[in-house]
Design a binder for these strands. Structure first.
Lengths: 223, 223
DNA sequence: TATTTGAGATAGTATTACTATCATATGAAA
DNA sequence: TTTCATATGATAGTAATACTATCTCAAATA
């Protein structure tokens, strides 16, 4: 079975919908490749324009600045994650199993994209790990939050919080635990590769280290 | 009782030691004010030069770029935190109490700096919450890590991990739990102020929300 | 006293992050 | 089929950023 998913991204994020044209779609696809390759700081619209054989001016007609473009990509990712959670939880009633499915989604590398029209999920996942905090750790966070541009992240968090509460209705901090799971999965994956002394990875336990760590703490917190 | 603390910051971080001159000291002090005020992205050496009535060229003689200056500030902070942990743990033998002291240091606003020669700890704390991840979430992380510039963070992590292991020697992930405590305390403090829907704060439980969440979390994991 | 060193002043460059204008192609509406 | 709106590309230009280089002067040091 194969299918594509589309999400309605909040219109406040872009000036012109990149889904509405070929350049727009190319723009987002190549942006993912470039941000992965260069890191967000070194990524520029000039470099992206060159890559898609277009111009800076054209890109600026779609996105106000590179921060917005990153936000667009992350909104897509968060929507996609919420979709995956919903989809994979379908018909699973065991409450522990439901949590495990979520942990799996948060810590496993996504499967390779099979069709060329889709975004590259592996690169996207790496971008989320290394760059996602840069969209909210900015001075203007309150201002940009007014346009509900973080709604997909909040929704994902809310969905995971629900599953947590189903499992243990007495637990008092389902949302905070939910963001902690998400953020910690990013940190520990990043640290275990780049700054392993900040973790407990070793050559023996390196495979799925983050999974094991997070699963261990989640069930200790909830049981 | 009042005293000042000095730390030897890794020489690879700066070109010229800012502690060695008055401009240098002013530079770091004012950088803390400015980064707090503008956020790291909007902070520039030009603005800092103006603020200390010096020139960009002078600042560049001390620091290669603003990333290094932020790293310098964070190294000082991490060293300071490790000092505080060591100091406040002195003569406390109760193992649970020792963990509680650490949690307190991670989640409480620091006390106002009493003397003008010292850095402003409250601003520093806010900078750590909002900007610290930007020093390691960069493409060049492996390269800059070679100079041991993250040693103070790793040492702090190691020290907290020791206290965790004392409390529960069987726990398998003391370092990862340690970084999770540190990073989660930053996230939850930031979210509870700026994106409260990502947490469980409410008007009733807002005071020390992060403290309560993390304490609950830590002892459930370790007991 | 001679010499090194640090700071300030000044200038200059490449790149970034935009904004503006105009011509042309395309596709839909009349 | 013509008309017209709209998107794109080409080009240009600006202010700010992130540097580097050079020279002078003053103060510390040998």
């Amino acid at each position: 079975m194969e299918f594509q998913v589309k999400f309605d991204i909040n219109e406040k994020i872009f000036l012109r919908n990149p889904e509405s044209s070929e350049v727009g779609r190319q723009m987002v696809k190549k942006a993912i490749d470039l941000i992965y390759e260069l890191g967000f700081e070194q990524f520029t619209f000039k470099k992206l324009a060159l890559e898609i054989s277009s111009t800076e001016a054209t890109i600026y007609r779609y996105f106000e600045n590179k921060h917005r473009l990153l936000l667009y990509i992350l909104n897509w990712y968060w929507s996609y994650m919420e979709f995956l959670v919903t989809f994979q939880l379908e018909n699973v009633s065991d409450k522990k199993e439901r949590l495990k499915i979520i942990l799996n989604l948060l810590t496993q590398e996504p499967t390779e994209s099979t069709n060329q029209f889709d975004y590259n999920k592996k690169l996207l996942n790496q971008i989320v790990i290394a760059e996602s905090s840069k969209v909210y750790l900015v001075k203007e966070v309150t201002e940009i939050n007014k346009n509900e541009v973080f709604k997909p992240y909040k929704d994902l968090c809310g969905k995971i919080a629900e599953v947590i509460s189903e499992y243990n209705p007495k637990y008092k901090y389902p949302r905070s635990l939910s963001t902690t799971l998400i953020e910690t999965s990013h940190h520990q994956q990043y640290f275990s590769i780049n700054l392993p002394k900040l973790t407990d990875v070793s050559s023996e336990n390196s495979s799925n280290f983050t999974s094991k760590f997070i699963e261990d703490f989640l069930f200790k917190v909830l049981d």
